[in-house]
């Protein structure tokens, strides 16, 4: 790293990272563009992307118009086609890729090997980003995708420490993107069939996690509220507690070593790496990703604006306003997850 001495105060010089922001709808995309996103990521209204939720995502017409608008404002558009096409339905995924190419997306985000190969052959001039859904967590796995398909950037799983990310960066020849804010998934993404086991809809094949149409909130006579997914109770809340959405890996369960129900996988926390931004940049992370395509426009505006200011402050050698980043979690408990220490494991 280069160190400059400015007014007798050493200032670290970082490569300016891109801020990658969620765009669940055309309106959210405009909001993120206006709030200073360097790039937005989005998907079509079907199983080809891992946030295939009702009311989200883009029709082909919306996609084309939104991309034009983003490009006019200097914002890149990354198309998430990051589920695994089940055999017999591959054409839907090819169509998504071909449409994206026609609309001049700046990169495809993919996880499936067959799809990566399709892009490498048919659209070699469009950047390929490896989705977190590919679950590639070692230099070897990452190099495999880079060598075979010419991947330009990898999105790392949220299970690595910053020291590990730094080590990986030394051993691969491509850009690194990491999540810095939002939902904190615990299972290795791309390798979780829990939702399919309970609901019959697959995270990998259908782009669905805890589908809303199988969620029930059931209140008993004491006004305790149990949250259910399919036939199973995921959590139970007293009358004064805030009931969370029933996501399997964030529920409370009984196990023999514990006397009471406990969060067997993880407490419902939000990931917030506001404090660690300089460390991530120093480790060689060149793109900082905000999760939340399912979130509202006002949320997108607030989060993107705050992180835009924080990144710009760091680049200018000023202290980022960490307090405002921490306030973003809206009272939810937050975590630095695996990034800070491997004790988390």
């Amino acid at each position: 790293m280069v160190t400059l001495v400015k007014e007798n105060k050493p200032t670290k010089i970082y490569q300016r990272p891109e801020l990658i922001c969620p765009a669940g709808t055309p309106a959210s995309m405009r909001t993120a563009v206006e709030a200073g996103a360097d790039a937005v990521y989005c998907g079509f209204q079907n199983a080809t992307n891992a946030r295939n939720f009702p009311g989200l995502n883009f029709t082909p017409d919306e996609m084309q118009k939104s991309i034009t608008h983003a490009h006019k404002n200097g914002t890149k558009v990354l198309l998430a086609v990051n589920t695994n096409p089940p055999a017999g339905k591959f054409q839907l995924w090819k169509d998504a890729i071909d449409l994206g190419a026609k609309f001049a997306v700046d990169a495809f985000i993919v996880a499936d090997i067959g799809l990566a190969n399709y892009i490498a052959i048919n659209h070699p001039n469009i950047r390929l980003h490896l989705s977190v859904q590919a679950a590639a967590s070692t230099p070897e796995a990452l190099n495999y995708y880079c060598q075979q398909f010419g991947v330009k950037r990898v999105v790392l799983p949220r299970i690595l420490t910053i020291a590990e990310i730094k080590d990986i960066k030394q051993q691969i020849n491509c850009e690194i993107e990491t999540f810095i804010f939002g939902n904190h998934g615990l299972m290795v993404e791309g390798r979780c069939s829990l939702t399919n086991y309970i609901t019959g809809l697959s995270t990998n094949m259908d782009g669905v996690c805890s589908p809303a149409n199988q969620v029930n909130y059931v209140q008993d006579e004491q006004q305790n509220l149990s949250t259910q997914l399919g036939d199973f109770t995921i959590d139970c809340f007293g009358r004064n507690e805030n009931a969370g959405y029933p996501t399997i890996c964030k529920g409370r369960y009984h196990a023999a070593p514990r006397d009471e129900g406990y969060y067997a996988f993880e407490e419902p926390l939000s990931l917030n790496l506001g404090n660690l931004l300089p460390d991530l940049m120093e480790a060689g992370v060149c793109a900082l990703k905000i999760e939340g395509r399912q979130r509202s426009r006002s949320y997108v505006k607030k989060v993107v604006t705050s992180f835009r200011t924080a990144v710009d402050n760091i680049m200018n050698g000023n202290e980022p306003d960490i307090a405002s980043l921490i306030a973003l979690t809206e009272g939810h408990k937050q975590t630095e997850g695996a990034f800070k220490s491997k004790k988390w494991r």
């Binding site: 615990l186 299972m187 290795v188 086991y197 514990r258």
Partner: peptide, 15 residues
């Protein structure tokens, strides 16, 4: 049926 993998050990966590 194998359903999911994690970086965290849930057996250790339970104990």
């Amino acid at each position: 049926i194998p359903l999911a993998l994690s970086a965290r050990c849930y057996h250790a966590r339970a104990h």
